[in-house]
Design a protein around this nucleic acid. Structure first.
Length: 667
DNA sequence: GTCTGCGCTTTTTTT
DNA sequence: AAGCGCAGAC
């Protein structure tokens, strides 16, 4: 009889799918059918009679979780039952469990702080502690949050974190620690959870004798994707879920570990076998994605302990990878746009092409070029709508209407009022949290703020009085809009975003879960109100390498393969930092199926956050070694041969036309 | 206390 | 370059 679950698999994949309940580690190189194997294993379990709710599938992105669930469904005899399976990101599952057991944790109500809330709270505490004076200029709250998160995720004391990663903060170590202690206390007092807390609370529940046993009994099968990206807390969670390793399957590739900055290390993958006192290792090395030419390059680049040299299932086909040396960032943008449009002319859809880069700002010039030429694109990674100030303002209104003691959101909302600055907002927010009557609040506010404030509070009260999302959203929008209109000089540019979020929220069944979801995974929501591409329209993908993980395109363009950009100059100071950049380079090259083009601008903006800053000389990335270049065809962009026409390259050009001097007008 | 303008610092990746 | 915090003017 034909076995539909394993019909399309090779021997190694089939071995993983058919493996029994013993702990299983799948070492899967890029493009080796990791997702296919994992989903087939899930389907096999369900078809063999395992109840879907006994299965927990943990991923790092919601996109991966959704893809796996739907692919498993396609393989199952009874697709509908896969809906009952537990599948999601570590954080999303943690949120669900923490909400379910909130009573046991002493929490009335679970409020999740997004990274912006965290910095707001730190700013608030900084004021309360009188740490804003001239003498002791502390690092930004953003940096403090990073230090805190790193310490929590790695179990390393903050002082050592600062010494290793943030040396310029060391001189303030005592005050920073004092502030972070206050931060932790305030979170505990108010029942606020940041992203790290979600995992910590889940771990705490699992470690509790009573609750832990109940949770363990819930899932007999635990499958973890991208195990090279787990940090210590996540390892603890997995080990507490399956202490003896039975029913545990993990998939990973040490060469694709790129989340060291949030406490992950591939050591967890490499050592799992020892930690469990034995497990089965299945190695997947047959690559179904890329041409041999691309893999020849990737195999040279590949770092790591697991020697997963990839063999192309497709054999030699398609062109050699190309290295293009460009004059500067603008030239690079033109070359990419030219190449994308040429391929499109030749019949390759835009959706089959992608442009990858190390940081969000690296695509600035290209985005302009694409807009000028009318090429539709969608950018992944970098700052999303949900992180923009105006959208967070609206969400703050949602939050206070759901939870009147959400001090951070009140504070944010109040500071949007004219004549309410930090001081009044802090005082009034505290009074609101105490439950003070709205009338009294208005009376306590500075006279100039009273009319607007009374209006806001009325509308928030109206929003709080209903459970119908559309009505609730409408009231919040009405409260926020006039405030934002006068607060932001460029309001017209922002208005569409606010409307978009409002519309998305109004269409939900439950506003509370919409907010929680949007907080834990902003990307899940952002696509819906993308004003630019209607995602069904053919469009080009622009993405950070991080956000491109696990995906593939026929043609991939890698920008800024120049020292200082990739590898990022911020990673050069430590060996681990540099190694992680190399893994990123590997991840980028292995996204391509047929064509890979790597660009190295010879001049780069000093300050990447701006478009027109001074350019300095840059060398091609150190990852483009002779051996790598041997696997490529090298070309020079036309812009390099004729630098005078290359536009803003920074050098001065001999004029051929005399520009009139208008000096006499100003004499 | 709030608003405005100036100088200093920062500078990546994400749940 | 830009965003943030600080100082001085209302």
């Amino acid at each position: 009889m034909l076995d539909t679950v394993t019909a399309d698999l090779d021997d190694a994949q089939r071995e993983a799918v058919d493996h029994d309940a013993g702990p299983l580690v799948i070492a899967a190189g890029a493009g080796t059918g990791k997702t296919r194997t994992l989903t087939a294993r899930v389907a096999r379990l369900i078809d063999s009679g395992v109840a879907p709710e006994e299965i927990l599938l943990l991923t790092f992105t919601r996109r991966a979780a959704a893809a796996m669930t739907s692919r498993a469904a396609a393989l199952c005899a009874n697709p509908a039952v896969t809906q009952r399976m537990w599948s999601g990101t570590f954080h999303a599952v943690a949120h669900r469990i923490v909400a379910e057991y909130s009573q046991h944790l002493g929490l009335e109500d679970v409020t999740v702080l997004d990274p912006g809330d965290v910095t707001d709270l730190l700013d608030l505490l900084r004021e309360e502690h009188g740490l804003t004076g001239t003498q002791q200029r502390l690092p930004t709250s953003q940096t403090l949050a990073d230090i805190c998160s790193r310490a929590v995720n790695t179990g390393v004391p903050t002082r050592k974190v600062m010494a290793d990663q943030f040396p310029w903060c060391l001189e303030h170590a005592d005050r920073i620690n004092e502030l972070l202690k206050a931060y932790v206390t305030r979170k505990r007092d108010r029942g606020l959870l940041d992203f790290d807390d979600l995992l910590i609370y889940w771990r705490a529940l699992l470690a509790d004798p009573l609750v832990g046993d109940r949770l363990r009994a819930r899932w007999n099968w635990v499958l973890v994707d991208e195990y090279q990206d787990v940090n210590q807390i996540q390892v603890d969670i997995v080990r507490l879920l399956r202490p003896d390793g039975s029913g545990l399957t993990v998939v990973g590739d040490d060469a694709q570990a790129v989340y060291g900055f949030r406490g992950a290390t591939a050591e967890h993958l490499l050592r799992l076998h020892e930690d469990l006192g034995g497990s089965t290792l299945v190695r997947l090395t047959r690559n179904f994605r890329s041409s041999q030419q691309i893999l020849d390059l990737a195999n040279v680049v590949r770092p790591g302990e697991l020697r997963l040299d990839l063999v192309a299932d497709r054999g030699p086909c398609g062109p050699l990878p190309v290295h293009v040396q460009c004059a500067n960032a603008d030239d690079e943008a033109r070359q990419v746009a030219d190449a994308v449009l040429a391929a499109h002319q030749d019949g390759m859809d835009l959706r089959d092409q992608a442009v990858l880069f190390r940081t969000g700002t690296h695509s600035n010039q290209l985005e302009i070029e694409l807009r000028v030429r009318g090429v539709p694109f969608h950018k992944y990674g970098g700052i999303g709508y949900l992180e923009t100030a105006h959208v967070r303002d609206l969400i703050a209104a949602f939050r206070v209407s759901l939870n009147p003691i959400d001090e951070i959101s009140w504070y944010r909302l109040l500071t949007r009022h004219r004549a309410l600055g930090k001081v009044s907002a802090r005082v009034l927010a505290a009074r609101l949290v105490e439950g003070t009557d709205h009338g009294d609040i208005v009376a306590e506010a500075p006279p100039k703020a009273r009319t607007a404030l009374a209006n806001t509070l009325d509308l928030i009260r109206a929003a709080a009085a209903t459970r119908i999302p559309a009505v609730q959203v409408e009231a919040c929008l009405k409260a926020v809009e006039p405030l934002l209109r006068q607060h932001y000089v460029d309001w017209p540019r922002r208005a569409a975003d606010v409307d978009g979020v409002a519309r998305a929220a109004a269409g939900q069944r439950d506003l509370r879960s919409f907010i929680a979801e949007a907080t834990i995974d902003p990307t899940s929501v952002s696509g819906d109100w993308a004003k630019k591409p209607h995602l069904d329209e053919d469009h080009l993908t622009l993405s950070t390498i991080h956000a491109a993980k696990g995906l593939e395109w026929r043609s991939v363009h890698l920008l800024r393969a120049s020292d200082g950009a990739l590898p990022s100059d911020m990673a050069l100071s430590t060996a681990e930092g540099l190694a992680e950049e190399q893994r990123l380079f590997y991840v980028a090259t292995t996204r391509a199926r047929d064509r890979l083009t790597i660009y190295s601008p010879m001049r780069l903006p000093v300050h990447p956050t701006s478009l027109h800053s001074r350019h300095v000389l840059a060398k091609p990335s150190r990852f483009l070694t002779d051996k790598v270049l041997k696997a490529m065809e090298s070309t020079l962009s036309p812009g390099v041969q004729a630098p005078a026409s290359a536009g803003a390259s920074g050098g001065s050009v001999a004029p051929t036309v005399a520009v009139p001097d208008l000096g006499e007008l100003f004499g």
